[in-house]
Amino acid sequence: MSLHQKIAIDTTLLTRYLAGEATPDEAMAIDDWLKEGTHIQEFERLQQSWQLIYGAIAYQAPKEDQEWAALEAALPATKKHGSLRRMVVRYAVAALITGVLLGAGLYTYLHYSRPVWQQALAGAARDVRKGVLPDGSGIVINRNSTLQYAADYNKDDRKVLLEGEGYFNVVADKERPFIVHNGALKIQVLGTSFNVKEDTGRTIVTVTAGKVKLYTEDHELIVAAGQTGTYLPATDELLLSNSVDANSISYATGDFSFQDMSLPDICHHLENTFGVQIILNNAQLSQCRMSAHFKDRPLSYIMDIMSATLDIEYTTKDSIIHISGNGCN
C-alpha cells in the first residue's frame, strides 16, 4: 500500500505498537510491513520480549472461522418478504442446524474425557528440548521422548500427554489443574517442579518442589517435594519412597550431586544426561568412588575433573568415551 510507505518502520514504532500507542495509520503500515520477507519473525522476537515480563497477558490469535460464524450470526438480517417456499427452506435449514448442533454437543459430551492432542515441542527427538507452554510453565523433554498438549490447553485445565521422560516446572494456577497423562497414569499438579520418567515396566515421578497427585482409575498417591512415586502398570500399584535421585533428572536441571558414588554409577548418570556411551577399559576402574557437585557444566569439564581426581585417562570419539587407568585401591 503505497499510501503508508511514508511511515518508516523501526524498533521505536514497533514498540509504540506493542505498547498500544499506534495510530490506525501506523498499525496499517506495520501490518503491510509484516507481510514482507522475514519481518514477521523480527516482530515476533520483539513481541516475545514484550510479553515475557511477568503479569503480561500473552497475545492469542483467535480462530478466523469461528469469528466469522459469530459475526455472520450477529449481522442484521437483510429483510425480504418470505415466500412460502423460502419459509419452508428456512425451517428445514434451522432444523438441520439444530440437528448438527445437538450432534456436535453429544459428540463433545461423549468425548469430553478424551482430549484432542497436538504435538508440543518440535526439534529432533535425539536432543533434549526445552520450552515454555502458553501459560508460562517450563518444560524439558529428554531424548527420544515426546510431549503433546490438549487442544483446549489452559481453558478449564492444562492437559499434556507424555511419552518417555519430561521435567515440568508448572506455573501455579488453582483454577486450571495441570495434568500429565502417561498411559493409564495421570499426574495432577497445582504448581510445582517434577520429573516423569517412563522406564521398562514402570513410571517414576520425582518431585523437586511442591506436591503432585498420581492417580489411576482405582488408586491415588500424593507425592511431595523430596519424594519419589513409582507406578507399576502391570499390577496397577503406586509406591512411595522418601528420597529423590537428583542425578536422574540432571538432563533437565544441569545439576549433579555425586556422594561417594562408584564410577559405574557416575558414568550411568553422565550417559543418561549427555547422550554418550562410556566404556571402562578395565574392571578395576569399577572400584573407584568419588564425591563431587557440578552445576551447568559441560561433559568435558566433568570428565577433566574426574580424571584429575581419580588419576584416570579418557579418550572421546563419536560420543563414545573410553576410560583407562590403574583403578583405585
Binding site: 524498533t11 514504532l13 509504540r16 506493542l18 516475545q48 526445552k130 502458553p134 498438549y149
Partner: peptide, 29 residues
C-alpha cells in the same frame, strides 16, 4: 518513545535464547 524502543531492543538482545525457544513453541501451538 525513544527510551521505550531502546529498552525493548536491549531486552530482546539479553533474552535472545529464551525468546527463540518460545517462538519455536508458539509456531507449533
Amino acid at each position: 518513545e525513544v527510551q521505550m524502543g531502546k529498552a525493548l531492543k536491549i531486552m530482546r538482545e539479553q533474552l535472545a535464547d529464551i525468546i527463540t525457544i518460545s517462538i519455536i513453541l508458539i509456531a507449533y501451538f
